[in-house]
Nucleic acid binder design. Structure first.
Lengths: 203, 203
DNA sequence: TAATATAAAATTGTATACAAAATTATAAGT
DNA sequence: ACTTATAATTTTGTATACAATTTTATATTA
């Protein structure tokens, strides 16, 4: 059977609501009313409920409202993220393949040459590659979820380039390339810590 | 209105199914049929679906079946667990309160004196206390979820006391008490690694 | 017999109806 | 005007019906 691009209503609803939250259309704290959303999409409440429950588990919705993370919440998320991505960077220094290393390099290059859109995408991919090299679906999944919440937070910050971000990526890349595990982990942790501070300072 | 201890059908269903999975009544790999479960509990399919979706997100159900983790899955879970609980132990060495330290000590003591039931509960609490001291709900939540899967795995292993477990807890406790962060982290990681090996060797 | 096609049954996904609960608006008394 | 109580409204939780899909059984053919 050909893969019919899942047009199941509850998948559609999930993606629709998720997009509207992440795009900022549905502001943080907004009450989500099942019936209104259902009507909006021309489907019934049942699949809408399903998707809301899923987003609730994912942490984007809390008590029927778009989640509104506090500074402390963000610190907690980053504490875990720093731990996991620090480990991932260390892991890369030993186990990364030539191909992934090449892709990583490409991300860094785009960082100093590409358009604003391209740079954003490349920065995101930079982290995804590093986490992906662990080959640990549990870890990848946890980081993915946290990413949504971080993204939500960053949104209000308007997206704005943080100074030194590219240089930091460059440094991490170099450490990995030279198989320096300690340095890779250390730089990644410092990098993420600065990112946290940047987010917090513009609230 | 008196607080009627949430007898909402979907909460009831969630707890019922979860219990049956963790108790082993519903074996790993068993197909979960919404209608059968609904009938079994005398409620309709709607709340049963809700609870299944929740358990799916939690990782106890995958594709309508009780999750059946492979050795590799368990390794991945432990890789994350070792990272997080290693950090938690390190954190404890500096920040634990006198009261939590006392409770930790109590767990260790019961470990060498209590009944089999008591020992199991105390060992579980030992880890909960350490993780709890981080005061990081994100971390606590992640570990909680992984615990369910580990528990599920351990079940098939019949529950059996692992040699040296108490002694290892004792060592971790001592390191924390002496504020030796490096040692606490190292011992916790070794401890969990042995636990993983123990689980894997009896499959 | 094995492989394939077809029919039957079981199971899930979705819509809808209604009851329970929560929320909001309105009225009454101080 | 400010509470407090009561009614109206909205929103959620649950049951049920039916359609779409998946699974299983049965029949057919090589």
């Amino acid at each position: 059977m050909a893969n019919k691009a899942t047009q199941l209503a509850y998948v559609q609803a999930y993606e629709y609501i998720r997009d509207r939250i992440l795009s900022g259309e549905l502001e943080r704290g907004t009450k989500l009313v099942e019936e209104r959303l259902a009507e909006e999409m021309g489907i019934s409440r049942t699949p809408v409920r399903d998707s809301i429950r899923k987003l609730e588990q994912e942490g984007l919705i809390k008590e029927k409202r778009v989640v509104n993370p506090s500074d402390m919440d963000l610190r907690h998320v980053f504490q875990v993220r720093i731990l996991l991505e620090g480990f991932a960077a260390r892991h890369c220094a030993t186990y990364i393949t030539e191909e992934s290393l090449e892709r990583l390099n490409h991300c860094v290059e785009i960082g100093s040459m590409g358009t604003s859109e391209e740079v954003m995408a490349a920065n995101k991919e930079f982290h995804e590659i590093i986490v992906g090299v662990t080959n640990n679906p549990v870890m990848i999944d946890i980081i993915d979820r946290m990413q949504s919440i971080i993204y939500l937070f960053r949104k209000t910050v308007v997206y704005q380039k943080r100074p030194m971000l590219i240089e930091e990526h460059q440094g991490i890349y170099e450490a990995i390339r030279q198989n320096d595990a300690d340095e890779a982990e250390k730089l990644m942790k410092e990098h993420l810590y600065k990112d946290l501070e940047f987010c917090l300072n513009r609230m």
